[in-house]
């Protein structure tokens, strides 16, 4: 059975992706960095808008990791 994308990733890609994925996790699990009232945004206390902001940032970081892995899997031949 052939499995075209069944290659192991190069170490550099794995490490970069691990960091990209770890950033949002740490940004949200270290609560003291955002458990505060100000600065406010449109009436939202910092605590609330910071977490909303991370919805988008987390999606961005995760998507970057996806793109990195996908390019690496495709190999240099047909990679963009």
């Amino acid at each position: 059975m052939s499995h075209p994308a069944g290659r192991r990733l190069p170490m550099s890609v794995s490490v970069t992706c691990a960091i990209l994925l770890l950033i949002p996790v740490l940004a949200l699990l270290i609560v003291p960095i955002y458990a505060r009232r100000g600065p406010q945004l449109w009436g939202f206390p910092f605590f609330y808008w910071y977490q909303f902001l991370w919805v988008f940032l987390a999606a961005g970081f995760t998507w970057s990791a996806y793109v990195l892995i996908d390019r690496s899997r495709r190999g240099p031949r047909d990679g963009k």
Binding site: F52, W54, F61
Partner: peptide
């Protein structure tokens, strides 16, 4: 529930 459902996706990804 908000950080919970954000943190879950990097975990799923891995």
């Amino acid at each position: 529930a908000v950080p919970y459902t954000i943190v879950v996706y990097p975990l799923i990804f891995i």
